[in-house]
Every structure is written in C-alpha cells, then in structure tokens.
Design a protein around this nucleic acid. Structure first.
Length: 255
DNA sequence: GCGACAG
DNA sequence: ATCTTGTCGC
C-alpha cells in the first residue's frame, strides 16, 4: 500500500474517521513464506511507574521495537524511543496515546521486519481498526495484534495444550484467536490486523514464540522499554538510541 | 448499584 | 498500562 493517507490525529472524531477508512481498505493479503525464515518485529510502549488509570496527554512514554530472526530467535535490530503520549488511554482510541511513539521506534530500526507484532487489537475494535491494524497501515508493514484479552470480541478458551487455538468472533466475523502459546499458561489473543488474517496471525505468533508465553519480539521490546524507563536518562524530550549489545539473563515475569 | 472494553 | 498478592518452577 502507501497511497492511503494515514496519520495519528489528536482529535477523537478525526481518528474515528480514519479508523473507518482503514477498516474498509483492502490491502493485499500477506502470509509468511513457507519453509523460509522471516524477520518478525515487535513493539511495545510503557508509561512511568505509579501512573495508574488512563493517564493524560503529554505523559512521558518509552516505546521499543525489535527485529528477530524466526529461525534462530536472534535479535538483529533494536531501538528505544522516548516520547510523549498523544492522549489519555480511551477504549477504542489507543492509537492516539501510543501511535506516534510506536511508529518512531519501529522506523528507527536499522533492519525492518517482514511482519510486526503489536500489543493491541486489530479487527477486534468498535470500528474494526485497532492500533495494530492502524500501525501497519502507517508503516506499510503487515501486522499482527497480541493482547491478554479481547476488546469486544468473544470466544471460548482453547484446549490446555501448547499451540491450541479457538476462534474469537465479533458480530459474526472471526477477528482473531485465543492461542495457548504454552501449556498450562493463560492463552493470549492473537488478532488479524493489517494485511493479516486470524490464521496468519496464529502462524506468525507460532514462528515467534520460543520458551516463554509471550512471543520473543514482544517480550524483548517490553524488556527494552521498561529498562529504558528505569534508566530515566535526562536527555532531551524525544530521542532515539541504540540498544546495548550485552544481555541480562533474568528470569523476569511473563505477564 | 453493577459491570467493564486493547494499553 | 500499573498495582497487589499469591503460587509455582528453575
């Protein structure tokens, strides 16, 4: 795609209009090449600790993005971007809060992924265009949403075996799937988003998941964003910086 | 009063 | 998202 003029309007009604346009768009479907490794990206945005509730416009935020090779699980690129929230969190309008920062983090990646995981819904949305779908359109990248629970859609949990899935449906449309990435762990919801179907979303998450419940790209992006928040550098208001080369083997929690 | 709908 | 609390597993 590309011609579609998409942005991150601050006005809720302008965002709603864009979401309706995005929902009606018919970009070419994408799916992972069979039998060949791909680059799977992930991005994540967090706010200062102690900030409960919806937050406010102008809140400091940290957005991280990573690119990971699906065959080795190795990180090939990572960036953290410190910026500001465009709005408080409002159901159905997450794009206004996190869109700008997430876009900046992904664009800063020296190696772009083939497909991007986003901590948000896609078609499961009041206007069928959640942040995961919106971000894909803006970046011209296929996207898959991954959340802890649906926004509006419903569906029964899958069997308690690794890899099991069950449909998540919104008004008759299958918009995603519950997916048991790890046996005995709570399932995640994987969402069809920009240029992806529920089946493709499941396959991408399968390719990107290793030993943890959370797919590697999302897990690493989350770690990077929170680590950056912890450092609390006193740099200027908005800056992009390379990730540090070394790793910490921390048995961190995996919510 | 109750229930709740991404992050 | 963040907070709290509890439990399980390495």
């Amino acid at each position: 795609m590309g011609p579609l003029a998409v942005s991150w309007p601050e006005d809720p009604e302008r965002l709603a209009a864009i979401q309706r346009d995005l929902a009606a768009a018919t970009p070419p479907p994408w799916w992972p090449p069979r039998g060949r490794p791909i680059l799977v990206g992930g991005c994540f945005c967090c706010s200062p600790r102690g900030t409960e509730g919806r937050g406010d416009a102008g809140d400091e935020v940290w957005a991280a993005a990573v690119t990971i090779a699906s065959d080795t699980g190795r990180r090939v690129a990572a960036r953290v971007h410190r910026g500001h929230a465009g709005a408080p969190y409002v159901t159905g309008q997450l794009a206004r809060r996190e869109g700008v920062a997430l876009e900046a983090a992904v664009r800063a990646l020296p190696v772009q992924p083939d497909v991007l995981l986003v901590n948000a819904t896609g078609r499961d949305h009041p206007r069928r265009a959640g942040l995961a779908l919106h971000l894909g359109a803006v970046l011209d990248l296929p996207t898959v949403g991954v959340t802890h629970r649906p926004l509006l859609a419903t569906g029964a949990w899958p069997a308690d075996t690794a890899g099991a899935t069950s449909p998540v449906v919104l008004e008759g449309e299958v918009v995603g799937a519950w997916m048991r990435t790890r046996a005995t762990r709570r399932p995640l919801v994987v969402h069809a988003a920009w240029r992806t179907t529920p089946d493709v979303a499941v396959e991408v998450v399968r390719l990107a998941t290793r030993v943890y419940r959370t797919p590697l790209p999302l897990r690493e992006a989350r770690q990077l964003a929170r680590r950056a928040r912890g450092r609390m550098s006193s740099a200027a208001s908005s800056t992009s910086e390379a990730s540090k080369p070394h790793e910490r083997a921390d048995p961190a929690k995996d919510r």
